[in-house]
């Protein structure tokens, strides 16, 4: 009797626990949940916490976190027929779990569909651009981020409608030339470097020649100006001297002539000079005739 009562009590407790277990479910912060009744979706909940349901309802969970999908790099052709390897990263999340469940099912399926859609959209976008629309110092033409955004918004319209997935972001994280083109690319880079190297040397030479020429010109100019000023100064000196002489000698030109002649004698006559003097010259008259000249008192 006692034992049966105890078992009865235990089974009541167990039954209650099972009922509680079946009629509650938790929603994690990372999940979105679909409550289904025999496979038919009844309601969706993204509220984290403890929830109630009918015991015979079951629960499907989907990760609603932001996911990253790397579709790998593929080759694309630009409008000007340049091959580019472009690698992207797609950030996506489930926004409509019902549709996602019906059309895709799981993350792998989502990535497959994203791959196809993103590839096609990106190929179309790249095909409408020249290479210079991607690579350019002109901020209005460098479209890397713009292409990512454009592809994202085009893709997300499609994915939300068809798969219940939102493409949150698309980054073009790799832009490169294909491996088989690298040889040509490197050859072009080398040629360009050579040209730039030559340009640096030539510019250096050019500047050096200019500097030397300028220096030489300055030198000539300095010397010429100095000559001009010096000659002018000398001339002024000569003029001044001539004026002074003229002023002084003008007072008695006759006497100046006499005095200047005597000066010249001093300069002209030297040891090499031979002179024949007449005995009756003014100087020697006294010597030869021995008498006092007329008029001496």
């Amino acid at each position: 009797m006692v034992i049966t009562r105890a078992y009865l009590r235990l089974s009541v407790i167990a039954l209650a626990a099972l009922l509680v277990w079946l009629s509650t479910f938790t929603v994690s912060e990372t999940d979105v949940v679909i409550v289904t009744l025999f496979g038919r979706p009844m309601r969706t909940s993204a509220d984290a916490g403890l929830h109630l349901k009918w015991p015979f309802e079951s629960v499907l969970r989907f990760d609603r976190r932001l996911m990253v999908y790397d579709p790998g790099s593929s080759e694309f052709l630009t409008k000007d027929k340049k091959n580019l390897v472009i690698g992207s990263a797609v950030c996506w999340r489930i926004v409509d779990p019902g549709r996602f469940f019906q059309t895709v099912g799981d993350a792998t399926g989502a990535e497959m569909r994203l791959h196809d859609l993103v590839w096609a959209t990106l190929a179309a976008a790249i095909g409408r651009l020249d290479l210079s629309d991607l690579l350019s110092v002109d901020p209005d033409r460098a479209h890397v981020q713009a292409i990512g955004d454009r592809v994202r918004s085009a893709a997300t319209v499609e994915t939300e409608r068809r798969f219940g997935i939102a493409v949150v972001d698309l980054q073009l994280k790799r832009i490169n030339f294909p491996e088989q083109n690298k040889y040509a690319v490197f050859a072009r880079m080398r040629a360009e470097r050579d040209r730039i190297a030559k340009e640096y040397r030539a510019k250096g030479e050019e500047l050096a020649i200019k500097i030397r020429a300028e220096a030489d010109r300055q030198r000539s100019q300095l010397l010429a100006e100095a000559y001009r000023d010096a000659e002018k100064l000398k001339g002024e000196g000569d003029a001044e001297a001539a004026r002074v002489y003229g002023q002084a000698y003008g007072r008695n030109p006759q006497f100046y002539k006499f005095l200047r002649t005597l000066e010249s004698y001093k300069k002209i006559l030297n040891e090499k000079t031979s002179i024949i003097l007449s005995g009756d010259s003014e100087l020697l008259k006294l010597l030869t005739q021995g008498r006092v000249p007329d008029g001496a008192r």
Partner: peptide, 29 residues
């Protein structure tokens, strides 16, 4: 580097020539 060196050499030539000329001019004066 070469380009810069060539220019520096020319500058040093100029720095040598012009002051010497200036000195000679001053002397003449």
């Amino acid at each position: 580097e070469d380009g810069d060196r060539i220019v520096r050499e020319a500058e040093s030539y100029a720095n040598g020539v012009v002051p010497v000329a200036r000195g000679a001019a001053a002397q003449r004066g």
